[in-house]
Each structure stands twice: as structure tokens, then as C-alpha cells.
């Protein structure tokens, strides 16, 4: 399958501080990539730069998504182009009901893809299926977005939204953190259910354990804002064994 995302020499800073220092990464359709790295290596910054969050300033490099200049696009344009960010810390939005917000988002993306909009019945039917698959209560739909959810519920809610929105590229920012092993398996099933030859997933994680359930095609090690090593799924196990220190040293030598 063809190339979906290409990140070239990406440099970015936050509040004047350089965080990303020349990221090179290409993701083809159908692939699952994992970016692993210690705290402070720039993992979340990468996720936010790709989704267009304010305050993340790109100083050099480019990102091409399906042939388009991703960095020139507003956050909503990126979402409409098929990029989804599962937030590390999902935001609570009191007063906005999950179903109202999500139905609106689902239909925006469906229109964008040239599909027919879901009416209330179809939306509800589909939402119930996805919720059941994620072992989530249907009451969740009528609650305000993320309000009063536990950490684990918020993470599941992100995967539920992803399932409803059917993105081409899902960026999962530490979706595994804060989940117990049962919840982790459920979330992994949800991620795997979306795997297809047309879609791709970028998992950003500190730990290897999610990769036991969502097996990546490629694993990248991020340190000090650049990718210092790329390998297959076995690289994750190597990391688990040796820790990040070995790669950290390599990156410092390179710099």
C-alpha cells in the first residue's frame, strides 16, 4: 500500500524550548508503528504537532499526509483529512453531551468522506455496538464529555470515539497508561478491530506491554527529540530488557 504519512526533518519547540530535533518517520497504509521513548523525549510533542495544537511551534521540516502539507492545516482540517488523536489526558467538557458532540463529529467526517450522514437511530445503533465491544455502559452517551470518568474510562472513551470516527491515521498518545490489564486487553481489541490495509496507527508509549496485544510492524526509539533506532517488534522487547539508557547514550554520541 502507499505512503500515508511522511515526517521529514521535523523540528519543533514549546515555549521557546526545542523539543523535536529532526524527526524522520514514514508510515505506510496498513501499518502499525510504535514510537517509544523515556519521559521528556518528545513523544507527546510529536502527537500534538501532528494534530495541530496551539503553542507547538514547528521551526523546520515538513509533514506530508496523503500528499498534502499537514502543517498548513487547522486542527479540524487534519481531523477531516482522517487524523485522530487519542489524548493522553482527555479533556472534561461539562455541559456538552457525548452523543450530541460525537454525532456531530461523526457526520462531519462522513460528509468529508462522501458518505451519507447517520440519522439519530443509525448513530445510536452504531454507538451501542461499539460501546458493547469496549464493554462500556450505554449511559455513557448521555453523559457530558469525559466528566466524572475514571482515568481508565476516559481512555476507553477515546478508543470508542476513534471507532466511531474511523480515522485513516490514529495517533494514540499513551493510551495504555493508567489501564489495568483487563482494560488494556479491551482497548487493544478496539485498536486491532480498526486495523485495515487502508488505515494506519501510530502508538506513542513508554511501555512495551500494549505491544503484546497490538503487535506493531515497526518500532522507533525516540530520544532527545529524534528517532535513534528503528526496528521490528523485537526492538520493543530489547528496550524492555535493556532500558532506554543504552539508546539514550547512543543518541548523545550522535549529537
Amino acid at each position: 500500500m502507499g505512503q500515508l504519512l511522511e515526517i521529514k526533518n521535523l523540528h519543533a519547540r514549546v515555549e521557546g524550548k526545542a523539543i523535536l530535533d529532526g524527526i524522520e518517520l514514514t508510515i505506510d497504509a496498513g501499518e502499525v508503528h510504535a514510537v517509544m521513548g523515556p519521559n521528556g523525549s518528545g513523544k507527546s510533542t510529536l502527537a500534538y504537532v501532528l494534530s495541530g495544537r496551539e503553542g507547538y511551534e514547528v521551526t523546520e521540516g515538513e509533514v506530508i499526509f496523503e500528499g498534502k502539507d499537514l502543517l498548513a492545516m487547522a486542527p479540524e482540517e487534519r481531523a477531516r483529512a482522517g487524523i485522530f488523536l487519542a489524548f493522553q489526558y482527555p479533556i472534561e467538557i461539562p455541559g456538552v453531551s457525548t452523543s450530541v458532540f460525537l454525532k456531530s463529529a461523526v457526520n462531519i467526517l462522513r460528509r468529508e468522506r462522501g458518505e451519507s450522514e447517520l440519522d439519530a437511530m443509525d448513530f445510536l445503533k452504531r454507538a451501542k455496538e461499539k460501546l458493547a465491544a469496549l464493554r462500556m455502559d450505554q449511559k455513557f452517551l448521555s453523559r457530558p464529555v469525559n466528566v466524572g470518568f475514571s482515568g481508565g474510562e476516559k481512555k476507553r472513551s477515546e478508543i470508542f470515539q476513534m471507532a466511531m470516527l474511523e480515522p485513516k491515521l490514529a495517533i494514540l498518545d499513551e493510551t495504555d497508561s493508567g489501564l489495568d490489564i483487563d482494560a488494556l486487553k479491551i482497548v487493544a481489541e478496539g485498536i486491532n478491530a480498526l486495523r485495515s490495509p487502508e488505515k494506519a496507527t501510530l502508538m506513542i508509549t513508554h511501555y512495551q506491554r500494549l505491544l503484546d496485544y497490538v503487535v506493531p510492524d515497526k518500532v522507533h526509539v525516540l530520544a532527545h527529540g529524534r528517532i535513534v533506532k528503528t526496528g521490528g517488534k523485537e526492538l520493543a522487547l530489547e528496550l524492555e530488557e535493556k532500558g532506554y539508557a543504552a539508546f539514550d547514550a547512543a543518541s548523545k554520541d550522535a549529537a
Binding site: 486542527p75 479540524e76 481531523a79 488523536l85 458532540f101 463529529a105 470515539q161
Partner: peptide, 12 residues
Amino acid sequence: ALFYLRARGLEE
């Protein structure tokens, strides 16, 4: 919250 909603495709 504004960014969260925009990241789901809603216009600003």
C-alpha cells in the same frame, strides 16, 4: 476543550 473538539473535526 476547544482544541479537543477541533481535533475531532468541529470547526472553531
